[in-house]
Design a binder for these strands. Structure first.
Lengths: 249, 249
DNA sequence: AAGTGGTCTAGACCACGCG
DNA sequence: GCGTGGTCTAGACCACTTT
């Protein structure tokens, strides 16, 4: 009696994770590392059942979570298909950035990631962990049709993630790099929006007049790594083209 | 043999809905009509099982959907608790509007809902159904601490929903009224953001100088009623206080 | 101890997609 | 016809909360 109790307890300590969580993690990693490529299908529910010696209920729980997190979509009669990118989380896009057919898009790294002091211009309160750490800062300028439209200042805690090397950026995207090389996902964001008049520094970078209206966006992105947030202060010239975002259940 | 086949088929035609969908709809309506008030607990999973003569798997499927849609949260050992409001869908809030303790909030209906022609200033393309219909227009001005901060122009298709009476607004909120009186929920939104300089009309309403920077937000809200979208063109004075929104998985 | 939600098993039948 | 995901049953044991 005592012995079986100890064994059960051991099992819980050893396993720790729920069975569906193990399957979820296994499949998620497979997607992030491109073992299961975009538009391909995961193994069928019954195959996963056999592989993990479990029942469909448990496998379906894992797949439901993957679907909720935007990694896959299910197609009745066909299978679970890997999606291109996760459900957009209110990520800001310049109108036309996605319909890239008739627009040229370019991102220039003005300042490559390097260790600095936190900047007081960040609009959000830092966590106590972050305040104790130094930070990594990098700056980018995004172009649409050779016209600069977004000036981006980005910070994150140095003790949460090493400074990314400039040549390491996957497709020039910080988020793609996080997902594919570090297996870290964006879990949500908070934004503050302001309309301001461009000062000299902003107007120089965006190639507009001083005093022209600019959209100032402050964002805190929360990630699946508990101690890693990304802070961005973004200035946009919305005269040519508005900034878009959308969200759906 | 033939007879039982027919019966089964009949059953599908009669029921049409899945069992979990019936339970979902029943509970959702209970929440929307305040039969289950905010912060109260739904009947336990076993009670619902007995009431609908089904198993916990099916009941839990219904509850999972309610949770995904932001109607309830589950508390282990306690029950399923009704939430105050649905998961914010990137709804814009003025910083301080929610922490209303130290701020006075006021909404004034400048133009009560009435039938009009669609306004060409709407930033989104209308559906063909909407174009064929007239529209309902209403205008509001929102104050924070007796300072006007948001001027709101709103339109929706007249054939999708009758014009709401001014005294019908629940807590002055269009969305609360939609949910509680019409059982219609917001399913998502698209936004376009622009920084602009206030023209005379805007500056008069917001009590700022002509040429001051204003945040222009165009929104299309999609609802659970297929033919009902709400279009809003909003102008914000962000000098005192920024506009916020957030989204999480 | 009793009740609640969380996980899991071992099945069954259905609707859909495709060869 | 066969494999896929979608729904559902009838149980079991667990962890957590409250009495």
């Amino acid at each position: 009696m005592t012995r079986s109790f100890i064994l059960l307890d051991m099992e819980n300590v050893m396993l720790e994770k729920r069975k569906y969580q193990i399957i979820f993690d296994y499949l998620k990693e497979g997607i992030q590392t491109k073992k299961y490529g975009v538009d391909s299908y995961l193994p069928s529910e019954n195959e996963i059942c056999n592989q993990f010696k479990t029942t469909r209920t448990t496998v379906r729980k894992a797949l439901d979570e993957l679907q909720k997190d935007g990694f896959i979509t299910k197609e009745q009669g066909k299978g679970s298909k890997v999606l291109e990118r996760r459900k957009s989380l209110g990520l800001l896009t310049v109108k036309g950035f996605s319909q890239a057919v008739d627009h040229k898009v370019k991102t220039v790294l003005l300042k490559r990631p390097s260790e600095q002091q936190w900047d007081p211009s960040i609009s959000f309160d830092l966590t106590s962990d972050e305040e104790e750490s130094k930070c990594i800062y990098f700056q980018r300028l995004r172009y649409l049709d050779d016209q600069p439209v977004m000036l981006e200042n980005n910070w994150y805690a140095a003790n949460a993630l090493e400074p990314m090397k400039a040549n390491e950026f996957v497709d020039g995207s910080f988020f793609k790099t996080l997902s594919q090389k570090y297996l870290i996902e964006i879990m949500g964001s908070e934004q503050e929006l302001r309309a301001e008049l461009a000062n000299e520094y902003i107007s120089d970078n965006l190639g507009i007049k001083q005093g022209a209206p600019v959209l100032h966006i402050s964002v805190r992105f929360k990630t699946s790594k508990a101690d890693l947030n990304l802070y961005s202060e973004i200035y946009c010239n919305t005269a040519m083209v508005p900034i878009r975002n959308s969200y759906f259940l």
